[in-house]
């Protein structure tokens, strides 16, 4: 009896990702977010009609990693640029990939109005509570008391204001079809995040309006923690302030079983 098993592939690079080596730091969850989006693009067969819009921030080079058409926006303007593309090409799948400085600070106007218009685009929002690319300054999502290079004694809400809960904020708008928050800190939450990414694209395909998945993420380098400590810090500090949940789900999406 032959006891050797034939090789079986159980895990491989999604077709929607290129073979480029990612530049992200060890312990960073951008790579997981990229992979999840690419897996969903593969499963839905939308790679060839997708157009991505990259932000300014750590994921500024996102276009190197997705094997689909891409443009690179000015800081915070990805939703406006995506709007321009989607209005000219309504049958394409248009998505932005933005960090917290990009989306919740400099791009606040563009994201609120894209959601308010019910712009049929999907937004993947990486919230790691810090500016990564410029090496660790305070973000609009930095937690109260959190130390950064521009809040060295911790974020004092008396002078620096309070963190912004973007998913809750945007879910209030009538134009939003699907707005949820997920986390990338453990396998269960990563699986939940993938389903949410799928539902965001389904929202767009069905013309149900603006969709956004906020993804709680880590920044080991600028948090000054090991990758493992970072995952724990996210769970213990970020989730209490930024609860995981569905803040807006259009009725037509509720019948989709994944």
């Amino acid at each position: 009896m032959d006891t050797t098993l034939s090789a079986q592939i159980v895990y491989q690079r999604p077709q929607s990702l290129t073979e480029a080596t990612m530049h992200y730091c060890p312990g960073c969850t951008h790579g997981i977010a990229h992979r999840l989006i690419a897996e969903v693009m593969d499963e839905m067969g939308i790679r060839e009609r997708s157009i991505g819009v990259a932000p300014v921030g750590c994921s500024v080079f996102a276009y190197n990693y997705f094997d689909c058409d891409f443009v690179e926006a000015a800081h915070g303007r990805a939703p406006a640029m995506a709007t321009g593309i989607k209005r000219l090409l309504p049958d394409r799948i248009v998505f932005t990939y933005q960090g917290d400085g990009d989306l919740a600070s400099i791009g606040m106007g563009e994201i609120v109005h894209a959601a308010g218009r019910g712009e049929n685009i999907s937004v993947f929002f990486i919230n790691n509570a810090i500016y990564g690319m410029t090496s660790g300054q305070m973000a609009p999502t930095t937690l109260p008391g959190q130390k950064t290079t521009s809040s060295p004694r911790g974020r004092d809400v008396e002078t620096m204001g309070y963190p912004l809960r973007m998913a809750e904020l945007l879910a209030n708008l009538d134009g939003a079809g699907y707005v949820v928050r997920r986390s990338l800190h453990d396998p269960k939450n990563i699986r939940m995040a993938k389903k949410a990414i799928r539902l965001a694209f389904e929202t767009q395909l069905r013309g149900l309006g603006f969709s956004m998945v906020e993804l709680l993420s880590t920044c080991s380098t600028n948090w000054g923690l090991s990758p493992l400590e970072s995952l724990k810090w996210l769970e213990e500090h970020m989730i209490p302030y930024y609860p995981i949940g569905d803040f807006k789900v259009a009725d037509a999406l509720k019948e989709i079983k994944l």
Binding site: A80, M81, A82, G84, I85
Partner: peptide, 9 residues
Amino acid sequence: NMLYGAACT
């Protein structure tokens, strides 16, 4: 920036 995106098409 909408114009920028639209011009890219």
